[in-house]
Design a protein around this nucleic acid. Structure first.
Lengths: 346, 346
DNA sequence: TCGTTTTTCTAGAACGATTTAGTAGAACGA
DNA sequence: TCGTTCTACTAAATCGTTCTAGAAAAACGA
């Protein structure tokens, strides 16, 4: 293997100091155009690809990347258009600041490996996307002194958040359901701890997902007289909603409404109804959360939140030094469609 | 600001050498359990978060990240479930090797900034996702000595590829269309160079997208007598398909079939038909490419390709040293649904 | 008991850049 | 002409690790 071409090599070949070569790349106004051209030409000739990223990162203390932390496996995360929308917004801002995105899935099950990944990641700042309060990876980041912006309000370790009012939003949905006369609700939640996709009923203190808890609390607030059950079919995905709702529908004790805490789960629930010949909104009410594009097509009643804007705002808080606001609450809106209807009278 | 806690600090506090501290983290079997425990305890006490990522990357020559290159802006990329599926597959393998994904959009318009981003990225290997042949960023990577695996066959700079037979796949679609009697086709393509979303008709040598050219060649192969026109509504997205197809439908000279070179564009075309009261498959045939989930719901005739598997395979080629195969061709399949039907007789 | 191997730890040199402080010479104003 | 400011460049220190080579101590075999 031939010895690697470094700044030093180029400097010698071009008859200048290493500093000058560095400046040729990073601070063009610090040297004469003639020398700069000569240096760059020599570099090209030697096959030098420019300053090494790691070395630069070490010396300058800037990695040029934003870490993005997901609770779920990436493969799950990508299956939810909500996550994808968020990422798209974040990416938009990152591009503007010529910064890359470093995706880091941190499992709730194999905590150690995720924490390790976070420890080793070369990042300047981090976006915390739906990661539960108390995950060690957050403390790790705090320890590393990496500024974090979260999509949840609760994170005291984070330096800022961009969130919706989970409780109020869910309360709006609860009001809608209450008005329709529903008093028996099954809530579909994402269970990060799940190892199988076997649907299970959870106790309220077993949920272990901050946002889910808040949303349930919101529903209860405006539906004080209703009976609530919490069911999970595993991770946040269409298939989980399908499985969980199927299990509920096949049971002896059907509710009058199924409230998915995400659209993908709710869409799965609608599918479960259809395969059983049931019509959402007539035979049973299904509601979602997020308002992803497919929700409109499917006629799903849901809570709209500005997904992409959320991503953009997180990006600004992380990258734009002029951004002084540290806490943003995004607006939400109840979108009523065909999947919700009056509860049967008995 | 208090001076930063480094390996040296911890070493002194624990009464060992820096090397030992390093080993405590990276090579647990190189030191006694007792010392290791003492070191880690001391580290925790001092608030040391573990070896710095950049320094480690510099010294060891491993960044622990795979670069992912997209031609489009990330925000576009994420809007196509095809890209998302690919990413999910890749992420799955990356997780297995505890490696992160560094997302790098490289525009076809602002070439320089993308190339710069690639130059500065701290990555070990790179996945090249639908990047056109000849993009300077590829040469940059080659220069940096970074192994690349592409999703296209053509890239001679890449060290491997995982692709489908674009030409044959498209030929199968052409056969289907020919059998239905179509002889007048408008092809919807992604135009990376686009700056506006104004639909335009392109000459064949203007396309500048390798895969698109191959697919068109495939269609022509099995439809030798047909008339072909190429239209683009901009980047690869639902909206572009909608705009481009709308423009075609409103023109004096309607084709009998619109062949989208991606499902998202084709779905946009179907939408354009619907808003004009036309029924896909009856009034005009629409076909896609990829078979994303929404294609099934919409009843779109398309070419299925194993998206996620493609991502997985790319990941293996990049990360798994046991993987000896350097070139993989994935299978494709024509999926006929309601959006294609016989051409009208006149 | 003595030489050999194994275990456990360390010193010091990289890794490849950027930064700081500073020098020589050109340009400038009066 | 002289002092001052600019411009263009450089020497040397430094960023925080990991790696190589080797030393000291412990364990082992005969």
């Amino acid at each position: 293997m031939t010895p690697r071409v470094t700044i030093k090599t180029v400097a010698q070949a071009a008859g200048v100091s290493p500093s000058t070569v560095s400046n040729a790349y990073n601070k063009p106004d610090q040297l004469s155009a003639a020398v700069r051209e000569r240096v760059l030409a020599k570099a090209q000739e030697l096959g030098y690809a420019g300053p090494d990223a790691s070395a630069r990162a070490l010396r300058s203390g800037k990695a040029g990347a934003v870490g993005v932390l997901f609770t779920d496996k990436l493969s799950y995360a990508f299956s939810d258009p909500y996550a994808v929308g968020f990422l798209a917004g974040l990416a938009e801002v990152a591009e503007e600041f010529t910064t890359s995105l470093l995706l880091m899935p941190i499992s709730s099950v194999d905590i150690e490996s995720g924490t390790n990944a976070v420890r080793q990641a070369a990042i300047d700042t981090a976006a915390i996307f739906c990661v539960d309060h108390g995950h060690p990876a957050l403390e790790m980041l705090k320890n590393r002194g990496i500024p974090m912006v979260s999509t949840q309000r609760g994170h005291d370790l984070a330096d800022g958040w961009v969130a919706i009012d989970e409780l109020d939003s869910a309360a709006a949905m609860g009001e809608h359901l209450a008005r329709l006369g529903h008093r028996d609700v099954v809530v579909l939640v994402d269970n990060h701890q799940a190892t199988s996709s076997q649907p299970i009923e959870l106790d309220f203190d077993q949920i272990g997902c901050d946002d889910c808890e808040l949303r349930i609390a919101g529903l209860r607030k405006t539906m004080p007289d209703a009976r609530f059950r919490v069911v999970s079919g595993g991770h946040n995905a269409f298939g989980s909603g399908l499985a969980a709702a199927g299990w509920v529908l096949d049971s002896q004790d059907r509710p009058t409404a199924i409230a998915g805490l995400s659209d993908v789960q709710a869409l799965g629930a609608m599918e479960a109804m259809k395969t059983r010949g049931l019509v959402p909104g007539r035979d049973l009410t299904v509601t979602g959360f997020d308002d992803i594009p497919a929700a409109e097509t499917a006629g799903l009643t849901t809570i709209r939140q500005p997904i992409k804007d959320k991503g953009r705002a997180v990006g600004r808080l992380l990258l734009d030094p002029n951004e002084t606001e540290r806490h943003l609450t995004m607006p939400t809106e109840l979108v009523v469609r065909a999947s919700s209807g009056p509860a049967p009278r008995n």
